[in-house]
Design a protein around this nucleic acid. Structure first.
Lengths: 334, 334
DNA sequence: GGCTTCTTCTGCAACGATGTATCGCAGGAA
DNA sequence: TTCCTGCGATACATCGTTGCAGAAGAAGCC
């Protein structure tokens, strides 16, 4: 059916192996021979059989991406960028959804999925570090996100604390003294919400503003959660002149609620978010937020994983990469 | 390194081929032999090498999904559901982003991507039917969406016209006589916007309401586009008692603009959308919309593609599947 | 008993590429 | 002349599986 190396070899009057050598940029080939082979390839429309290559070489040039659910906007965008970054380096990304279940995470870590890929980008949500370390296998594994912070693993995260602190500092610099935080419990300090809350508290300290737990409202990290949280604060009579939504969906929900109640944004209450999703830019007023440098996260994690696969990165300890961030100052909190 | 069939064969005291037969559910194997092989497999922790299997059998048990950009919420959710539907049938989905460029679409259709998959789900955005037909190759190909309507291809779409008509009829039944449509040009009739506009017009006819082109406002299919379109209508003094956003983002943007201007939804103006994205449910007021049966689209298209691959569907003509829909009546247009 | 037919299992040859070992032939050194 | 070295190309084995052909034994039929 398909054209094989053998056909090309026959057409070019060389051996099978010489064709292989041309394709793999082997050094010692006479230019004339190389040309003849390349002509034959072009003429016959030969395309290398990736499956055969994989079987022989043991490499698939595919990277696995394990996340809970691709339909979440943040993951969708991350996946999209990872795929592009991988493509630039000649790799593909195969996505596996875990639905945040142990079974699925285990399966992605050791099942056939692992076999199909040369390395894994893993967003663990339910498995713990020890369990992962015990089943890690030999192929490279890079963690994404802040669920696991363990020196044994390569890890790429964003600077949650620093970014939240910078954003809070921006609000304080604009004269806001009572900044409500929605999306965390007041005593929280671990995980994504905790890290961002830490940053908020650090910035308050720096600005000499006391921390008031009454300003911190927990809720679901969704648009309606943000709206409900702000409604709750207002109804309880808590006073505030700014709202920091721990992600953009929360902030947008909060802003919506404020606007409906006739509260002016940013004149009366400033609003800021985190993540810089597309909608943040198109909201009205447009949303001040932190861009977590997803481009950088994607770029760095792909680079790190491929460096491990191709043996350029050989550190015994896990490599820990923190991607930068950028404040996006917009209308909702100038 | 890894355990191979040969190791299993040795451990079970049978031939290599018998192990293969057990794995492939060959009929004529004595239960005792089968058991011995299965025990050996369990004991050694044998896992079939998928690459070798692919090379030999010519099947990868992977399906290709070509779409413009995975970060668009609709595609992200579609991809997520397709992956789950495929997984249930023992297949994986490999996603390729085309960025709506001809090069990338061509590449997905004939390049190495095609080789890695047993069949393709294709959302063509720029390539035309003839060009696709000429490069289709031998492997099954199923079209998604309404860009291409051609009897040569298998095709899975939603009932755009019927759904838009049903939604418009619902608005009319609630007494709305002037329903603005945002997201289409008044004369449009092809593509997704055109089909939905057709449905709108049909429903108006049925209800005996004349069509007024002034009520139709084109704009970008984004949240801010919807807001701008409604603002435009209001500023021009066009009167309307309902807004039909041709997708949910548009409708949500429109609703936001109305609320900010102090116009009550649904008392003064009802708002309805299309797609039933997650946010429609969580908006306040919650958004009346059409659920395009994405679950059904995913299920049917995967089923059709796999039936083609495994030879259960053999129609010479393209099979055309239209997935059902459901009105989601919520607060914004009761 | 001799013949097919069915069951159960085996061996060998692929699938299409790459790794290893090797070979002829230059050209330069001894 | 002989020996060595490096270039350019080749032959063969190999990766782990499945398809094909067939062997050995039991069973059924005349």
């Amino acid at each position: 059916m398909a054209v094989t190396m053998n056909d090309v070899a026959r057409a070019a009057g060389v051996s099978l192996k010489t064709v292989s050598n041309v394709l793999n940029d082997y050094e010692f080939i006479r230019p004339a021979t190389k040309q003849r082979v390349q002509d034959a390839i072009a003429e016959l429309g030969y395309e290398a059989n990736l499956t055969a290559r994989s079987l022989r070489s043991g490499k698939t040039r595919m990277l696995g991406l394990v996340l809970s659910d691709l339909s979440a906007p943040y993951y969708a965008e991350l996946a999209s960028r990872l795929m592009k970054a991988a493509a630039q380096r000649g790799y593909r990304v195969l996505v596996e959804q875990s639905d945040a279940t142990v079974d699925a995470e285990l399966n992605a870590l050791q099942g056939p999925f692992r076999q199909l890929t040369d390395g894994l980008l893993f967003t663990p949500l339910v498995m713990e570090a020890d369990a992962i370390a015990g089943r890690q296998g030999k192929k490279p594994l890079v963690m994404l996100g802040e669920h696991i912070l363990d020196p044994r693993f390569d890890l790429v995260t964003m600077k949650n604390e620093e970014a939240a602190a910078a954003l809070t500092a921006h609000l304080a610099a604009a004269g806001r003294r009572r900044v409500a935080v929605i999306g965390a419990r007041p005593e929280e300090s671990g995980g994504t919400p905790g890290l961002r809350l830490n940053g908020y508290r650090q910035a308050l300290d720096t600005a000499g503003i006391p921390f008031d737990p009454a300003l911190v409202a927990p809720c679901e990290w969704r648009r309606d959660g943000g709206a409900a949280a702000v409604a709750g604060l207002l109804d309880q009579g808590v006073e505030f002149d700014a709202v920091f939504g721990l992600n953009d969906a929360l902030a947008l929900g909060a802003m919506h609620e404020l606007l409906i109640r006739g509260i002016k944004v940013p004149e009366q209450v400033a609003v800021a978010g985190f993540d810089d999703i597309d909608e943040a830019r198109f909201a009205s007023p447009s949303l001040t937020t932190v861009s977590p440098g997803m481009a950088e996260i994607a770029e760095r994690s792909i680079a790190l994983l491929i460096d491990r696969i191709e043996g350029r990165e050989t550190a015994d300890q896990g490599v820990h990469v923190e991607a930068g961030f950028q404040l996006q100052i917009r209308e909702s909190a100038p």
